[in-house]
């Protein structure tokens, strides 16, 4: 993955540069801040955990540490699909602990300037949680949805297992 493909467009950029990891989910492209991403791994054997929300796929053993795995497709209410060679788990530190997120494919790391981020339009792709969309990045021929996963666990889900 190289960021040379997307040269920094200094002419247009105002404000600080941020780096994003972009990934695909059902034909759309999304991005998360690179600093949040701990590592990207292939699909290991996932152990199902009973009595959890449907989007919690289970837990995996990440070098001796047990971390929860969340299916982004299920979370966003998209059609489930088979895992293939492209399927990856993005391990991120969200809400103070490591969690893994299943995505269709991880494409690259891109650099953009924060001024390129536009507020998300009122109506976005169906089913996607409005709250965790931090903005939309509109570059020449691509549209990237910037996600803030902290927000994903901000309200209801966080309390699912709360005592």
């Amino acid at each position: 993955m190289s960021n040379a493909l997307v040269p920094v467009r200094t002419d247009e950029s105002h404000g600080e540069l941020i780096q994003l990891v972009s990934f695909n989910l059902d034909r759309e492209e999304y991005g998360v801040e690179v600093l949040k991403v701990r590592e990207i791994i292939r699909m290991p054997v996932v152990t199902r955990v009973p009595n959890t929300p449907h989007f919690v796929e289970g837990v995996i053993n990440l070098r001796g540490k047990v971390i929860p795995i969340i299916s982004m497709r299920k979370k966003f209410g998209l059609m489930d699909c088979e895992t293939d060679k492209q399927t990856r788990i993005i391990v991120m530190e969200v809400d103070g602990e490591l969690k893994g997120f299943i995505v269709d494919a991880v494409s690259e790391v891109i650099r953009i300037s924060s001024s390129e981020i536009q507020p998300s339009p009122a109506v976005v792709a169906s089913g996607i949680d409005q709250d965790c969309i931090a903005g939309v990045i509109n570059q020449a021929e691509r549209l990237l949805v910037l996600l803030d996963l902290e927000k994903m666990f901000s309200h209801d889900e966080k309390n699912v297992f709360g005592s």
Binding site: V49, P50, T52, P68, K99, F161
Partner: peptide
């Protein structure tokens, strides 16, 4: 091994092991 705080308090599950 602890399941972490996200999956803590699942009824009937005390933790996990490898």
């Amino acid at each position: 091994k602890s399941l972490g705080k996200y999956l803590a308090n699942i009824p009937g599950i005390a933790g996990s092991t490898i």
